[in-house]
Design a binder for these strands. Structure first.
Length: 256
DNA sequence: GTTGAGCGTT
């Protein structure tokens, strides 16, 4: 059974869900199966992962058919070292639909009747949130920090370069309005007012006002040394290119 | 290649 959770929720009726925390990011359902299967009838194992990257989020759900077996698994596997990490096994407090469940027991009654029992507790679902609290207290500039290391992490520098040569298809704006699921909904909702100021400031720095300078901080200045010579020769960095003709974009205001 | 509080998909 290697397709746990891939075919969707099988039969969640009268099953007992266990929440497995602290598992490694590479632990799969197959890895957990032998551990939990030893203590009872495992109906299904599901490991939520990031839809964009497909990475494990660090926890899993194991559904047992009987409560006593689930309880035993909690007692026996809680604190067990799996894949080199101590896992935490406990009964799930919420159901697949985020409804509150009792002792990890899932039944149709709970899925329909007690559904509205919750929705009052906006729990966090993403690591962005837990990190957010850390970055929140130190500075409010986390608005962009979060994007840098959470959404793009180290790849942001890539999309920046590529977006120039390729097209807007690689720009973050494209993703935000295209292939974004409900995950980004919540984060986008609260940054709505803030994102506006960011959107108008970010592109304003790179696109308009090109007359400022080509690269003020880079300043090739090849005269000091001669590292660019071999590459500069073929590029013919002749000063004649500095003429106004080089900047047609300045036609709107080249001499204020 | 990294990370580490928490509650889930066809």
């Amino acid at each position: 059974m290697s397709h746990f959770g891939r075919t969707g929720p099988p039969d969640i009726t009268d099953t007992y869900s266990l929440l497995i925390l602290n598992i490694t990011f590479r632990t799969t359902a197959d890895d957990l199966f032998p551990y939990f299967d030893k203590y009872g009838k495992v109906v299904d194992i599901f490991i939520p992962r990031n839809r964009r990257t497909g990475d494990s989020r660090g926890f899993a759900f194991v559904r047992y058919k009987y409560a006593d077996e689930a309880q035993k698994a909690v007692d026996r596997l809680d604190g067990k070292v799996v894949d080199g990490r101590e896992i935490t096994v406990q009964f799930a407090k919420y159901g697949p639909n985020a409804e509150r469940i009792d002792k990890g027991r899932i039944s149709e009654s709970f899925s329909k009747s007690s559904y509205r029992s919750r929705s009052r507790s906006p729990r966090r679902r993403y690591r962005d949130d837990y990190r957010d609290r850390d970055y929140k207290r130190r500075s409010r500039s986390r608005s962009f920090d979060r994007y840098d290391r959470d959404r793009y992490r180290g790849r942001d520098r890539d999309y920046r370069r590529r977006s120039r040569s390729h097209s807007r298809s690689d720009s973050p704006d494209y993703y935000r309005g295209r292939g974004r699921g409900r995950y980004d909904d919540e984060r986008r909702g609260r940054s709505q007012s803030r994102s506006r100021s960011m959107d108008s400031a970010s592109p304003a720095q790179r696109s308009p006002t090109p007359r400022r300078s080509a690269s003020p901080h880079r300043s090739p200045s090849p005269r000091s040394g001669s590292p660019d010579r071999h590459s500069g020769d073929r590029r013919s960095p002749t000063p004649h290119g500095v003429s106004p003709a080089d900047r047609p974009a300045d036609s709107r205001s080249q001499s204020p």
